[in-house]
Amino acid sequence: MPYCPECGAEVYASAEICPSCGTRLKKPHTELPRNAHGDLVTGEKSEVLAVILGFFIIGAGLMYAGRVGLGIFHLVLSILLFWTILVPLALWIYGMLKGYELCKENNMLWLQYLEENR
């Protein structure tokens, strides 16, 4: 059986509060974090993978990063305006950079959540 770190009394492993001194033994888990767009952050995402996906398919990096609608919009717009060359090129570059940025933000929020719930 574990012991209370404050008073040293023996406590049940499932106890959240020490019955002897009232010290909280376990931190209550906080709600999963949300990013700036209101989406739940549920784990780490690879920034490199977002860039690689975005390199091969316009909008795929955005979709991987959680912005599926925006990624599909970029893909469809690039297909419709392929003849302009500049619009697909701008969307291609923007998609890779934004996918990287979104994954980085996601990972920062996830690491903060893990630190708070140790």
Rank of each mutant, 00 (worst) to 15 (best):
L86F: 15
N106I: 00
L114K: 12
G43P: 08
N106Q: 06
F55Y: 13
I85M: 10
L80V: 15
L89E: 03
E47K: 13
V41N: 00
G59H: 03
G38F: 03
T42V: 11
L97E: 11
Y64K: 07
K45P: 02
R24T: 10
W110N: 00
Y113N: 01
L89W: 11
Y94L: 11
L75H: 01
G99D: 10
L80W: 08
I93E: 09
H74D: 08
Y100V: 04
Y100R: 15
R67I: 01
T30R: 14
W92D: 03
L91W: 11
W83P: 04
N107M: 00
L77A: 15
L109F: 04
L86G: 00
Q112F: 02
G66L: 05
L77S: 13
L97W: 15
G66I: 01
G43L: 05
L114P: 03
E47F: 06
L97I: 15
I72P: 06
T42M: 10
G66E: 02
G43K: 05
L91V: 05
L86N: 01
H37F: 13
L86V: 14
T30Q: 15
I52E: 03
H74T: 00
L80T: 05
V76Q: 05
F56E: 01
V41A: 00
P33A: 08
L80Q: 06
R67G: 06
H74L: 03
L77K: 02
I79K: 02
K27G: 05
G95M: 09
M108E: 14
T42D: 11
G38I: 00
L86Y: 14
N35E: 02
L62F: 05
K104T: 09
W83L: 07
G43F: 07
H37N: 12
L77M: 14
V76W: 04
L75R: 01
V87P: 07
T30H: 14
W83K: 07
